[in-house]
Design a protein around this nucleic acid. Structure first.
Lengths: 214, 214, 214, 214
DNA sequence: CATGAATGAGTGTTCATTCAT
DNA sequence: CATGAATGAACACTCATTCAT
């Protein structure tokens, strides 16, 4: 046992405990990059530095691995978001712009956003996954936006638009950015790339402006 | 020879000319429904009522078939759109709302829109297809929107926003609708479905309102 | 009908009569070049300028075509040889050398020699063809050589060697040349090519010299 | 664990190490018997007692398997030959006859000689294999014969013939025997079979006699 | 727990052969 | 007779999954 081992004891043991996480990490990368079908179990195992057999020790099938990846990658960010929104100080318009930018920085600009692309891409082949995603991610997310909008309307800051539809007006550009980033983005020359922060800012201002009584 | 034969002579010959179209139709259905990888060539052939060999007679490989489906399904709507826009009479704001609704009725609400979802889902596996799609579909489409926006700005109807970003604000909800329709949509209970026309109308009005000088 | 047609009347008709020959010609080329399995019926038809269906009109199967090619390409040269040998004037040694050179110029150096390579390559898959080849080609050929050798022995020009074995000593280099020409030859740099005439000459002289009483 | 296991421990492991050899053995049999195209991978696997997948675990494609068979079957005999020739005592004539007989017993009369027939049959479809064969097999073999001939000439035992051509005079009957054995041989009645040793002996003597100064 | 050799069902693709026109 | 569109059996190759070690 050398110095390094002394400084980080139980190295091997910690490794073992992280196994599932490392496998999910590797799988997320590959699923996002190549889609479900084009991702080979052996490649996932190789990227995680284990053998093919070990991967099946933790996840009984490719489909299970896929679902586990989606479930594991999704839950955390959503909960975080709810907490932070609660502490926001400012007008409803400011809140909405802030939420969109936060969403991008905390999730959209993250590797984890790849699973949104994944779910949208593969939902028709995995209906139960789509259901899970809607329940755990979309609904809570929509609720946050819905509340902010409703607050703006109730306070007389916004006009009395259809809140449900307005929610989608706020989510659409975010999901669009995510899809773009994971599909067409890599194929575009740099001068045609979208600047996410600038786009979100302007889009939010257009919407807030459009919503506002004048 | 019976009456039917007299009315449609050369049954086999007529069949032959329609083959490519019938095959592309069947392939579109299946690709949209199950994605590229999960679609089997034999199933495509079967749905078109021919044998596996016949399919390969017209398309030398699965990838070629896929690309042909994309090209065939997309080129028509794009060209149509450009023509119709040219004849529109009205303000820039009215034009934009009209364009969005038209896009939905002519393309988004059509089976063909499934290939937009397909391309976004599979772009990373078919880089050349992504390039084609960007060049032949996205760019022309963006140009139409860009012109409408610029006209509105030039005429003093709109504020001087970043046109490039505003283009995405107009496209995002349309692509979002398409993705939703082909992924989450089928899993949602009817009362949570999005009413596309209503959503587009309100979104367009929010944007136009947000863009307008007051 | 134009002048050309007047000069060569029945052009189409003559064409029809030659069909089998043209098909066999095309098939010979391809079989020799690529072997039985790698030759596609469609390619044979294309080279002969007819459709695939027409080819099957004349030869009921690929195997039949192959056998017909072999049979057609073989019979002629052998008969020719026998006639010419009968008129040769000179010693047994001179006759043998002359026969070998003639064999090369009349057959080995000809496209038709490709079928010898073919037969040797594919004999195990077409036993009946091997039998036919042995009966129609090898036996008559051997008989000519055998006679020449026996004559030399009877006349006291040659020593009393085993004639049957000596026949093979005369044939081996010729068949070797044919195989070489159709297999390794095309892959060899020119400076390593064998000069057939020089080789045959020296080989014949070595054999005749070795056979001779001194 | 029983006695058998103690005597041959790690049964599976031993199996694994032998796999490539067993597969090459099975493939050699079938390639020689049926040619490259007519040999099915599944049959090779079956003959080696493994599944189709296992075969592809060791050889990535049919072509690779074929090339591996050629290399494995040929390299050994060639190296062996070179060593043995170095120890030969006797005249150049005796050496040449001995070399021919050795070639037959060590290689020609062996299953491995089937690949010489294979290479000649398939060379045009596998140009790189032909190159390999020429470099690794033909050239070294020719060098041995060339040296023996040159030695005989230098020592005054042989006349000053063209050595390069004489080399072919020695190789031709050997290759002829191999081709015969694998093509026409099996179709011939026993009384027409060639006695290889007798044929080689007489051919060698004819050549040596023909080469000698008298 | 971990390994990696082995499996075999599944799929894209080819091509000899048929037959309606 | 000639055509060429259509067929479907056959085969190379892949990869998720298993299991003896």
């Amino acid at each position: 046992m050398n110095t390094a081992d002394l400084l980080s004891p139980h190295k091997r043991e910690r490794r073992k405990q992280d196994r599932p996480g490392e496998l999910l990490e590797a799988a997320l990368d590959l699923f996002v990059e190549k889609g479900f079908a084009a991702t080979r179990m052996e490649e996932v195992a190789a990227r995680a530095g284990v053998s093919k057999g070990t991967l099946f020790l933790y996840f009984p099938s490719k489909e299970d691995l896929f679902k586990a990846v989606v479930r594991a990658s999704i839950i955390e960010p959503v909960n975080q978001g709810a907490v932070e929104v609660a502490h926001f100080q400012g007008s409803a318009g400011e809140l909405l712009e802030w939420m969109m930018l936060q969403w991008w920085h905390r999730y959209g600009d993250t590797k984890a956003s790849g699973i949104s692309k994944l779910v949208m891409s593969e939902a028709s082949n995995f209906p139960d996954l789509a259901l899970f995603y809607r329940t755990e991610v979309i609904e809570p997310g929509h609720a946050l936006v819905r509340n902010a909008l409703q607050k703006g309307i109730d306070q007389g800051e916004f006009r009395a638009v259809d809140v449900e539809l307005a929610v989608h007006s706020f989510m659409a550009p975010l999901l669009f950015l995510v899809m773009w980033k994971h599909s067409m983005g890599p194929c575009c020359p740099s001068h045609e790339q979208i600047d996410p922060a600038a786009f979100i800012s302007q889009h939010a201002q257009l919407l807030v402006n459009g919503l506002s009584r004048h």
